[in-house]
Write a protein that binds this DNA or RNA. Structure first.
Length: 138
DNA sequence: GCCAACGTTGGC
DNA sequence: GCCAACGTTGGC
């Protein structure tokens, strides 16, 4: 099972809105980057990812699950990009900030640290486990 | 197909 | 609000 990280600006789409979308979830539209697209194409239903607030907050705040595999993004006029559907699984007890991630040497190779502009990223199993623990989840 | 110009993202 | 990094566009 691969692990992922989804980035969103709270002013565009926040964790609270994701939670409010409930079990039906929502589509993760708006990705216009081929590297991010490739991550989404690799996603399987049931795989989980972190929900990260960029700009404001700058922290991992929750966990989402992929509930629909890659399909065309109707908001992309060019027809080149697609999206997946995700639903909120649970919030971290305490958000794990970018500062905390950068301060943790075991996380120095995270894509979030090295390619901060990529909006959908792969996360290793070790990174997944550690950030979950830092966020107060067993 | 190269590369300069431009636009966008996101940390600071 | 600034600006570096990066991706994309478009002229050649």
């Amino acid at each position: 099972m691969a692990r992922w990280l989804f980035k969103s600006e709270p002013s565009t789409w926040s964790w609270d809105q994701q939670v409010a979308a409930g079990a039906e979830g929502t589509f993760w539209n708006g990705v216009r980057n081929h590297l991010a697209k490739q991550q989404m194409m690799a996603m399987q239903v049931g795989e989980q990812g972190f929900f990260y607030h960029s700009n404001e907050g700058k922290a991992v705040v929750g966990i989402v699950e992929v509930i629909k595999p890659y399909y065309p993004d109707h908001t992309d006029a060019s027809g080149r990009f697609g999206m997946v559907d995700v639903r909120a699984v649970e919030a971290l007890r305490t958000p794990v900030t970018l500062d905390a991630i950068k301060a943790e040497s075991a996380l120095k190779d995270m894509v979030l640290v090295n390619n901060s502009r990529l909006s959908v990223q792969p996360v290793s199993e070790a990174e997944w486990t550690l950030i979950r623990r830092m966020g107060g989840l067993g």
